[in-house]
Amino acid sequence: MQTTKIVPRQAPERRRETLERLATERDVWVSTAHPEHGPHQVPLWFMWDGQAVWMCTGATSATARNVREDPRVRLGLPDTSDVVLLQGTVECFPDHEVPGEAAQAFVDKFGWDPRREDGPFLYICLVPKTVRAWRGEQELRGRVIMRDGAWVA
């Protein structure tokens, strides 16, 4: 087995690469919790609008129920070798109340409009308060690249 030495990135490079991934990737792990039922984690499609992450799920799903009870959420991009975690409090929009530009951007990215489906859907919007990004142990120091909603670099 051959290992590759990871050269630690500085905060500006981590931020740039994180923003590129948010703009191009499709799936995100969504972690929520219910006060009685505990943690819940599912993958959802997401769309990054430059400021916020937008997701959509069935209005009666466990994720929808959980964020109505406790809007604190953690998101994780799926690559465990290139970790990106976002954390914050979500705002929820029933499909008939979602801002039009957010719904259209979701349609543009995925070719799917939940507002046209049978049954209600819930749009979930996360403006991150904390973002962490790291590749391997060498990057654990300095992994916080957004704190209190402001980019560190």
Rank of each mutant, 00 (worst) to 15 (best):
M1S: 07
T4A: 11
V7E: 10
P8N: 05
Q10F: 07
R14V: 00
R16Q: 14
E17V: 02
T18A: 10
E20H: 03
R21A: 13
A23W: 13
D27H: 08
D27M: 12
V28S: 07
S31R: 08
S31K: 12
T32W: 03
T32R: 07
P35Q: 02
E36P: 01
E36T: 08
P39S: 02
P39M: 00
Q41V: 03
Q41T: 03
V42H: 13
W45T: 09
W45I: 05
F46D: 10
M47K: 14
M47D: 04
M47F: 14
W48I: 06
Q51R: 14
W54Y: 06
G58M: 10
S61E: 06
A62L: 07
A64G: 09
R65S: 15
V67H: 08
V67P: 11
E69K: 04
D70S: 10
R74I: 04
L75D: 01
G76C: 10
G76R: 05
P78E: 12
P78V: 02
P78T: 09
P78K: 01
D79A: 10
D79P: 02
D82R: 14
V83M: 12
V84W: 01
Q87K: 15
G88C: 03
T89F: 01
E91Y: 02
C92P: 01
P94M: 05
D95F: 07
H96M: 08
V98A: 10
P99I: 11
P99H: 08
G100L: 11
G100I: 14
A102E: 10
Q104M: 05
Q104V: 06
F106V: 02
K109G: 01
G111W: 00
W112Y: 13
D113C: 01
R115V: 04
R115D: 04
G119I: 11
G119A: 10
F121D: 09
C125I: 05
C125K: 15
P128A: 01
K129Q: 15
T130A: 03
A133T: 01
A133C: 13
R135Y: 02
G136I: 04
E137F: 13
E137W: 13
G142M: 06
G142S: 05
G142C: 05
V144M: 12
V144I: 15
I145K: 13
M146C: 03
R147W: 11
A150P: 05
A150D: 12
A150I: 14
V152A: 02
